[in-house]
Amino acid sequence: MVERVNSMAASSERKGSAYNGYAMLALILVFLLLPLSQLVLQSAPGAVVVSAIVGAVAILFIATGFFMIQPNQAVVLTLFGEYRGTVRKDGLHWVWPWFGKEKVSVRAHNMHSERVKINDLRGNPIEIACNVVWRVADTAQAVFDVDDYKEFVNIQIEAGLRTVGSRHPYDDMSDEDETTLRGSGDVVNHELIVELNERLAVAGITVDEAGLTHLAYAPEIAGAMLRRQQADAVISARRKVVIGAVGMVEDALQKLSHDGIVELDDERRAAMVSNLLVVLCGEREAQPVVNSGTLYQ
């Protein structure tokens, strides 16, 4: 792991306060009804005009302080550049018009990365991509500690994917049981989650899920690697066939000797082993040959 040093003081989310928006709507209704009530009471025309002007100014003043919060949404409040808390409660709210209000979604976001070309642990060029589910855990850090937290997430996901992809080989080319990108999906996905959470902690972002969605050799070596995989498969299959055939021949010789069906000297035993191995290991059907003489003629 690369140690990351952060000299900047991290922001921390705290609860903000706001007034009930529905109560402020009722106050607007009062200012609307005030001039009408004066007309009904036949007040002086000048008083009605003054009341209407005062009511209009008050309504405009109040209207600029409303904001609505949807489920899984938050609003970060600032006052003259100073953080004054975060409101997370759903519904209609009101603050003084000179407060700054910035909405932040705290819902889960799904991001599918672009395919990136990297070198694995052995230097082989590969193409890799991932899918990440992330959400904003600390709204103060997301708004104040990074310039654009969504763009920050995109860049760090690619960087984290490159880091994790370069730690392991694409495939296991040796007899050792090692972690590989192709064969150890759970381990690699866990490493990716840990890596991304470390990188995104400065922005108050939490990664819930992460996993590889694309993994392949780069086009320039894909053909050669495919032939290598085919050769490995052929060798493995041949090895199993030979081991099985040797076991069958051994069982056959032991059965013949134990039941006293035929007595075989070393030369006949070697000939039988050779014939059985040819029959069992050959890719074509064996053609029987009738020997009219003996083995020694």
Rank of each mutant, 00 (worst) to 15 (best):
S105N: 11
S105H: 01
V106W: 04
R107Y: 10
A108W: 10
A108H: 03
H109N: 14
N110K: 14
N110F: 15
S113R: 11
E114R: 14
R115T: 14
R115M: 12
V116K: 10
V116M: 12
I118M: 02
I118R: 01
L121F: 13
G123W: 00
G123P: 07
N124H: 10
N124P: 02
I126E: 02
I126M: 03
E127V: 03
I128H: 01
I128P: 00
I128Q: 04
A129P: 07
C130S: 11
C130M: 05
N131M: 05
N131H: 08
V132Y: 04
V133Y: 04
W134F: 13
R135Q: 06
R135W: 00
R135C: 00
A137T: 11
A137V: 05
D138A: 06
T139R: 11
A140D: 04
A140I: 05
A140K: 02
Q141H: 03
V143F: 08
F144M: 13
D145Q: 05
V146I: 08
D147C: 09
D147I: 11
D147M: 13
D148F: 07
D148M: 06
Y149R: 09
Y149M: 11
E151W: 03
F152E: 06
F152R: 07
F152W: 05
F152P: 10
N154F: 13
N154K: 15
I155S: 04
Q156D: 02
Q156I: 03
I157S: 04
E158C: 10
E158Y: 06
A159I: 06
A159Y: 05
L161T: 05
L161C: 04
R162K: 12
R162L: 01
T163N: 08
T163A: 13
V164D: 02
V164E: 07
V164H: 07
V164W: 08
S166T: 13
R167V: 01
R167I: 04
R167D: 12
H168Y: 15
H168A: 09
P169Y: 00
P169N: 02
P169I: 00
Y170K: 12
Y170M: 15
Y170C: 12
D171E: 11
D171M: 03
D172C: 12
M173K: 14
S174Q: 04
S174T: 15
D175I: 13
E176C: 02
E178N: 12
